[in-house]
């Protein structure tokens, strides 16, 4: 099923709610499926996260298995941690703590360690270069935080992995995963009056009027005097901003908050829900396609979930139309 899901998309990223959520399993499975279908794939990752910090010390073994012909963009030092036979194709000039990001082609099957660039603009350059060098599809191993959820700027679609390692409390895992899934499934705004080059943090759109503000408090003030308004928010949408908007009170009903993309919504699930309950809704300028949520009922810390109960709860909690898969079983 995974292979059918990714079919329409040239670049797909994998995102995990936590370590051991099964993100790498998903990635390996995607690579294997593409190899079976004779596709040339390319791999890179978003910078470096907690999981990858171990690899400088060499305590973490590379665990992504690629096939001959695969393109890999990773930091120079990480290239040596893998064991594929390789050809150096391109050096990017993009620095990372583990050396410059280098693009190589695998001439054998084998293990690789990914540590790509951390900036969106750089990832975009890498993606284009890999497509130019003959990759049919690009997989981006995403980070372990909501902060870079799926990065719509660089990938057309995403797969979110979650599992029992996230929390001992299954309910919390399900709720938080569902919140992330909801953010990744936000619709594109239908408004046509959204300015593309807004420089200030907040733009309040009301009727034919557009007012710009640096402070959330000022934007909330303008919102209070408006009806059926929309607020375009550049960059991150924080709890601080959300709390400022609460002061707009009843004016929140019918307000549309427009973020650049789902990954910019950094506010807590609680505040997000609160704004929704007040009658506002969230949209984005750039959408990501959330292809699936994968679950791993086994925890690295010993508290496993009941597989069926977990799958069931997750299926009920995620946005409609998003399949929930257990990658370890056949339905993947």
């Amino acid at each position: 099923m995974l292979y059918e899901l990714i079919q329409p998309y040239t670049s797909v990223s994998t995102v995990g709610m936590c370590k051991n959520a099964g993100k790498t399993t998903v990635l390996n499975e995607l690579i294997r499926l593409c190899a079976e279908h004779g596709e040339t794939v390319a791999l890179t990752s978003v910078g470096r996260d907690g999981e990858r910090s171990d690899l400088v010390t060499g305590t973490k073994k590379p665990e992504i298995f690629v096939y001959s012909g695969t393109l890999i963009a990773t930091a120079a030092d990480c290239l040596d941690l893998g064991d594929v036979s390789r050809e150096i194709l391109w050096t990017s000039g993009m620095p990372t703590p583990m050396g410059e990001v280098v693009l190589a082609r695998a001439w054998s099957d084998g293990l690789v360690q990914l540590a790509g660039p951390s900036m969106t603009a750089q990832l975009r350059v890498i993606r284009e270069k890999m497509l130019e060098l003959g990759a049919g599809r690009v997989f981006i191993d995403g980070a372990l935080s909501r902060k870079s959820l799926a990065m719509p700027a660089v990938s057309d679609a995403a797969i979110l992995s979650t599992g029992a390692s996230y929390s001992r409390d299954m309910k919390k895992t399900v709720n938080d995963t569902a919140h992330s899934a909801a953010l990744m499934s936000l619709e594109r705004t239908e408004r046509e009056d959204v300015p593309e080059d807004a420089e200030q943090k907040f733009t309040v759109l009301c009727g034919s009027k557009a007012q710009c503000f640096e402070l959330a408090e000022d934007a909330a003030d303008a919102l209070r005097r408006a009806e059926k308004a929309a607020v375009l928010i550049r960059g991150g949408v924080t709890d601080r901003a959300a709390e400022a908007f609460f002061s707009a009170g009843r004016a929140l009903s019918g307000t549309e908050f427009i973020a650049e993309d789902g990954s910019r919504l950094l506010l807590s699930a609680g505040n997000y829900e609160k704004l929704l309950r007040a009658g506002s809704r969230f949209t984005v300028l750039k959408t990501t396609r959330l292809l699936a949520v994968t679950v791993n009922p086994f925890s690295a810390y010993g508290t496993h979930y009941d597989t069926d109960a977990f799958l069931d709860a997750m299926r009920r909690a995620v946005p409609a139309g998003v399949p929930v898969l257990n990658v370890k079983t056949k339905d993947a």
Partner: peptide
């Protein structure tokens, strides 16, 4: 030299 250096 590494293969990356020889490449450069």
């Amino acid at each position: 030299l590494t293969d990356i250096e020889l490449f450069e």
